[in-house]
Amino acid sequence: MTLRAFLLVTVAVGWWRLPAAFGHGTGPGRRNIAIQSAIVAAIAVCMAWVSGPILDGLAVDTETFRIATGLTITALGMARVLGWGSRPEPVDVDAGVAGSLWPVAYPVLLGPSTVLAAVSVGSDHGVFLVLIAVASAALFAVVFSFLNGGGRWSGSLVRLGGVVLILLAVALVFDGLRDV
């Protein structure tokens, strides 16, 4: 279950969408990608850190939130399988760190699946696992940002990422139901 949770957070951070988001164009540079990834990782770790108070504030327990997270990420994964989020995004290669928040930090890396997975896994397994997972995702983000996403393969990668996301999310739902 811990491995699945790790994989869920790693895949929920949508680094596999970067080639499609950049298309034939050039990404905003290795340094910018690394900074954007670090920002997203920091936000995800913060979400995991405050996951307990968040769930308390929402008056739901971890199993209920886990099931809800699984169902929502399943829906998001299906959207990716259907091709949503596989079109190139506008990228300003010269805009610096702040200007390239879009589309790298948001919407590609920090989507609802990242937020939900960080809170759910943070609540169930603690901050450290989320930290390792988002650090891995950040590394993948840097590597994948240098691939030329102009071919059809980048769209296929988004669909494949969606499938993997669905599998992990469905497992999360069953984990939640079993632990209830």
């Binding site: 008056a59 209920t64 809800a68």
Partner: peptide
């Protein structure tokens, strides 16, 4: 559109999936 999607998504998530347990 993204902001609206987030607001709507959070509302649906809260009301539909994680209504408060009393």
């Amino acid at each position: 559109a993204h902001v609206a999607a987030w607001v709507l998504g959070v509302a649906v998530f809260r009301v539909g999936l994680i209504a408060p347990q009393s």
